[in-house]
Design a binder for these strands. Structure first.
Length: 768
RNA sequence: GGUGGCGUAGCUCAGUCGGUAGAGCAAACGGCUCAUAUCCGUUCGGUCGGGGGUUCAAAUCCCUCCGCCACUACCA
């Protein structure tokens, strides 16, 4: 009677390592799949790496290996991480398989046959030398905006502007160094507007039947309301699925078209009867677990591909779209390497079940959630250990110690079990709806109920006066623990198995809930989890702060600066905060409320994040007389661009290679069209004739100043974080003075590397 | 710029169809000793981002402003 359940989680792009935020989707589907199996549904959970596309092709080219080799390498990284987290895939596959090619081409050909494919001719750069069209990234040339000579075709790394490769001056091919020419090329498009009526027909009952999350509905409706457009589905690449159509032999499908088809093809690599899952809507329900950034692809584009093919596909039933997991005061970021990644979680030595516990206890189900190490510690110690772990431990040790481990049969009493039955029914319903977090919290309420009962009955007092009654109470609790093991097992499977081991049973299925049979004896009991101690948490928090590049820099700096441990500490603490710039609510409130009351020096210190930075490139602003555009190294992964009005005062050579003081958390601005991510500090004074003297604050005389080092006021503690987008007015409202060649704010000298920042020519004046 | 989201207790988050603002943690106090300094109970704590509107009644619906985030755009 029950339908079979087909479960997917979003295919991770193979090119990078998943962080905790990404893992939530995979883990969510895992919990749901484990629950479905325990409830007796015939269940299939598939996932795998999404491998085709420009990103992997380019990366492989850079590393001098084939895309397939690159993908295999990364596939193994993914695979290993998911294994460590005990994800119970029926199949974790990949998209670079013959099955994938076959099914993708089949769907395409049917779309084509049904008139849902159009073609348009566009102009694109072409390499005559290599006889191929060039993807945007394979072209470099001079940026028309900033004059940078090595700008990439899709975006200039120097000024950050998005480019059309056709705009590049003197374009050249990265493949063969030839000069590409414009040539017409024809690309295929999927005609979404034409499929729309079919989509709407399907959506009419699909969405409310399965209760899509609100954000999924909103986004989908907004998409459709704003009008669907034809979307290009081909690219002039090699690493992809060939387009099986005459005249398109040199093209492949664009990765977003084939990626979701991976769900299907990966199933096909697992079993020959894959169509009994994917072309069987009468008997199969499809549950998809994704992040909210992926919603339209799964509710609009992919369904359109399937519907347009005309086959009788198993369509999306339930859509579970999680919100974002943020990290400490910022966001997880793959590109910047901020946060805790799958391999990091493993390297902490904290067991997978503890991570699973925390991620589900706080699953961002209806709004974003912020991961903090402190909260991780509190929830683990308080809830997982203090509540569940303690109930298991106190009950089992009690029954072992005072009853030789014997458990009474038929220990059911209505008073004890009725609330449990009600709670279990609720938990089951919530799990059916994939409300994984609410269900999990309810399970912990049930555990708390056990602790409360234990406490109220005071068996340590009654075991002599009411021998049988007390033994019965404990037996009841043992059966409750058995139930908790069942309920928890989708979330923390290894722990459930251990608990069952204590009880001398195999993990029962869902039907065993509420029964008093099956347990006669407690075999053993052991501590389930180690507490997370303060020192360990502080250590992890420090270790995983900042970007991965900063972590590496910190490690090497720590090694180098062995003689100055204190300074090393200060630097690492300083780097931790500003990298994760976006201020959390607390910091924002504090920042807004505090300044007027604080004296100038403290206010400045709390708000302005000054950094040492090295000028690595200087050039004139093409559209301004006084402005230089500098590229500077602030110890971050990417150099920053700043613009400063120093042309009348300094030549390019006088600036190049120098180390300056940067206001690093200034809100970025555009000066004459050029992005400026910060401001360098310079002192100025007027001489007797009214002429202005300007002196940039150089740090080169202060010894080896590492780019990115903090520049701080003397004698104030390092702030925990800074405002991320300090307004210019704010900054200028806090005057920096030079007095006696010493740079001061509110009477306090400015230090870098433990030495005072000094001027040479400007003995007194203002800095700005 | 467009689209969507978010802003609720010190912290992290719930709050359904408009009907007396909730939980957990933290803090303070009390109790217990089977248990990993664990557990149980009590208390404290909010101008629901600001302002306006609709309504007998607004965290909830409408308008507007502020702040933050994501996606997107030949915006700079």
């Amino acid at each position: 009677m029950n339908k079979r359940r087909l479960i997917t989680s979003a295919l991770p792009y193979v090119n990078n390592i998943p962080h905790l935020g990404n893992l939530i989707q995979v883990l969510s589907a895992d919990v749901f799949a484990r629950f479905c199996r325990l409830r007796g549904y015939e269940t299939l959970y598939v996932c795998g790496t999404d491998e085709y596309g420009t990103a992997t092709e380019t990366r492989a080219r850079e590393e001098g290996i084939t895309p397939q080799e690159l993908c295999t390498r990364y596939f193994e990284v993914h695979d290993e991480i998911y294994r460590w987290f005990q994800i119970s895939f029926d199949k974790f596959g990949r998209t670079s398989t013959p099955e994938h090619t076959r099914i993708t081409q089949d769907i395409f050909l049917k779309l084509h046959k049904n008139g849902y494919i159009t073609s348009h001719t566009i102009e694109q750069l072409y390499s005559e030398a290599s006889d191929m069209f060039l993807a945007d990234r394979y072209i470099r040339g001079t940026c028309p905006h900033c004059g940078y000579e090595d700008a990439r075709g899709d975006q200039c790394e120097h000024c950050g502007k998005l480019l059309d490769p056709a705009d590049l001056i003197n374009p050249r091919s990265l493949v063969d160094n030839s000069t590409p020419v414009m040539r017409e090329t024809e690309h295929l498009y999927i005609d979404l507007p034409k499929i729309l009526p079919v989509l709407q027909e399907w959506m009419k009952d699909a969405a409310d039947r399965a209760g899509w999350s609100r954000n999924a509905m909103q986004m989908t409706n907004a998409w459709i309301r704003d009008g669907l457009k034809e979307r290009g589905i081909t690219r002039d690449l090699k690493w992809g699925i060939p387009v099986p159509l005459e005249g398109y032999e040199t093209k492949v499908f664009y990765v977003w078209f084939d990626a979701p088809i991976g769900y299907i093809s990966i199933t096909a690599t697992l079993r020959d009867d894959w169509e009994s899952w994917w072309k069987n809507p009468e008997n199969v329900e499809l549950f998809q677990f994704i992040g909210k950034d992926n919603i339209p692809f799964h509710t609009v584009i992919f369904p359109c591909s399937l519907l347009g093919s005309g086959d009788n596909w198993t369509m999306l039933h339930h859509m579970s779209a999680t919100e974002y997991l943020n990290y400490e005061s910022g966001q997880f970021s793959k590109s910047r390497g901020v946060g805790v990644f799958g391999n990091d979680a493993r390297d902490t030595g904290i067991p997978a079940d503890v991570w699973r516990f925390y991620l589900f206890y706080n699953r961002p189900e209806s709004s974003d959630f912020t991961f903090t190490w402190k909260d991780f510690q509190e929830k683990t110690n308080g809830e997982l250990i203090g509540n569940l772990g303690n109930l298991v431990n106190r009950t089992l040790t009690f029954i072992t110690r005072f009853y030789e481990g014997r458990v009474l049969p038929a220990a059911i009493t209505d008073e004890f079990w009725r609330p449990i039955g009600a709670a279990q029914a609720e938990i089951t319903t919530q799990l059916e709806n994939a409300h994984l977090r609410d269900a999990f919290r309810k399970i912990f309420e049930l555990s708390s109920y056990g602790n409360r009962t234990f406490q109220a009955a005071e068996p340590w007092k009654t075991r002599d006066t009411d021998v049988v009654g007390t033994h019965q109470l404990l037996s009841n609790l043992v059966h409750l623990i058995r139930d908790l093991a069942i309920l928890c097992s989708p979330y923390i499977p290894a722990t459930s198995e251990r608990i069952c081991g204590f009880l001398g049973i195999d993990l029962p299925d869902w039907k065993a809930l509420g029964s008093a049979e099956g347990i006669t004896h407690v075999d053993s009991a052991a501590i389930l989890f180690e507490k997370l101690e303060d020192e360990r948490i502080s250590e992890l928090q420090a270790r995983f702060s900042g970007t991965q590049a900063e972590r590496a820099a910190r490690d090497s700096a720590a090694a180098a600066a062995a003689g100055e441990p204190a300074a090393g500490e200060a630097v690492s603490a300083a780097e931790a905060a500003p990298a994760a710039a976006p201020a959390d609510a607390n910091a924002a409130k504090a920042g807004a409320a505090a300044p007027p009351e604080l004296p100038l020096d403290e206010r400045f210190h709390a708000r302005v994040d000054l950094r040492a930075a090295r000028i690595i490139q200087v050039e004139r602003h093409p559209e301004a007389d006084k402005l230089y555009i500098e590229s500077i190294d602030v110890g971050e992964e990417e150099p920053r661009q700043i613009v400063s009005g120093l042309v009348p005062h300094y030549s390019e050579d006088e600036l190049l290679g120098k180390t300056i003081v940067l206001v690093s958390n200034l809100k970025p601005a555009k000066l004459r069209g050029e992005k400026s991510q910060g401001m360098l500090l310079a002192a100025s004074a007027k001489n007797a004739d009214g002429e202005e003297t300007v002196e940039v604050l150089f740090l080169d005389d202060l010894g080896d100043v590492v780019p990115g080092s903090a520049v701080r006021l003397e004698g104030l503690p390092e702030p925990e974080s800074f405002p991320s987008k300090l307004k210019v007015e704010d900054f200028f409202s806090m005057p920096i003075r030079v007095e006696g060649n010493q740079v001061m704010v509110g009477g306090r000298p400015l230090l870098c590397n433990g030495k005072a920042v000094r001027t040479e020519t400007v003995a007194s004046g203002n800095v700005g």
